[in-house]
Design a protein around this nucleic acid. Structure first.
Lengths: 208, 208
DNA sequence: CGCTAATCTAGAACAAGTTCCACACTTGAT
DNA sequence: ATCAAGTGTGGAACTTGTTCTAGATTAGCG
């Protein structure tokens, strides 16, 4: 139960400089290819070639295509989080700030819809073998949302709301990526779900 | 905008009896295999063999593995909806009834977790070429939820809430299937998102 | 420096989704 | 009954993710 235990990731062995460079080249090539044609355009052989690395090496660094794309998403989320920290949302009220933050993220994704496709599809297609990595993405997303809310010690109720917001975020992205929902529709869904934040704000409705 | 247009599905050509039987055998074989080992266990060659049909024929009926599994989901949802109509939820309040309905569906899925895995993974992995079919699933789900709410003429606001509930439903299922969330966690998420229903009930908060 | 273990490389091999092809069988219209 | 078009069959072939192997390279260490 404690946050100490890290059973699945005992410790990433420290990488040499060349290895770090390889890893970076791989992720870069992946993002490049993904930006072109989405999930299908990320072909392991091509990634390996573009990164100047043997196929076997690629698989040593990332044990599957999904691992590779989830790692790419971690990378992108990192950037996003940094950017957001520099320019926090300005809206009034936690709900509005979260909605603003997610809409900003959404606009960033719209600039590279194919890349978004590759990352999100990988994320939801991931099976148990990728759970630790997907979990990291989930924690990053949670951190971004909590940041936007400006909370230090969220209540369990608020954490539930955040979970539901993440669910909606992922699923709404999918419907948009597969052309079943418009940008406007996604916006409405995000705003709708963000209402849950006010609903679970102990300031407003003290212990319901 | 009108609900009349059906651009992508001009009209399914009527199937002969033998064809209907083939289709049924295919779907049955699919559900069977999926129940065993989930998405990966549904192998097109095996489905074809189990259904007593040539591989090419299988592909004539369902143009991809994802199409096949989404069709399976349509089938299962049909069953579920029929069952639910016979025994509607009994809880007080729209939100409670929807939560009850979804939890019932969730328990049904728990009985065949591998089948659930196959169907849900296919659903979220589906690309644009499967949009019409996925949309059908979405409409079925919407119908089930609206039934539970007991609504004839939902407001746009209520429809938004329903959309968000569907998002949460799908995404929560995925986190459960990939072992990142417990059954209890899914329950909490469902109950949390269902609160949106009360929030958008014009009876309770007349035009906010 | 010289050795050993780990890492990389090139490429073959394998697995499963998908496509193709040549031929057999229904079916429906004449 | 017969012919043409459409449908189904069996199986090969192609694609791309993944695994495996044998031989170079590299890194750390005495």
């Amino acid at each position: 139960m404690s946050a100490e235990a890290r059973p699945a990731v005992p410790a990433a062995p420290p990488l040499t400089e060349r290895q770090e460079a390889r890893r970076r080249r791989i992720l870069h090539a992946t993002a490049q290819l993904a930006s072109r044609g989405g999930f299908d355009a990320v072909q392991m052989r091509e990634v390996a070639e573009a990164a100047g690395v043997a196929l076997g090496t690629l698989y040593r660094y990332f044990p599957s295509k999904v691992h590779l794309l989830v790692a790419t998403m971690q990378d992108q989320l990192q950037h996003l989080h940094t950017t957001l920290r520099k320019r926090p949302p300005v809206a009034d009220g936690a709900a509005q700030r979260v909605a603003e933050t997610l809409m900003r993220a959404f606009r960033a994704l719209q600039r590279e819809p194919h890349l978004a496709d590759a990352m999100v599809r990988a994320l939801t297609f991931a099976d148990r073998s990728v759970s630790p990595e997907v979990d990291t993405v989930s924690r990053q997303t949670t951190a971004i949302i909590l940041d936007a809310m400006g909370l230090e010690n969220p209540t369990p109720e608020q954490l539930s709301a955040v979970r539901v917001i993440e669910h909606t975020w992922h699923s709404a992205l999918i419907t948009w990526l597969s052309g079943r929902a418009s940008i406007a529709q996604v916006k409405i869904d995000i705003e709708t779900v963000c209402r849950l934040i006010d609903l679970t704000d102990p300031e407003r409705r003290p212990t319901a």
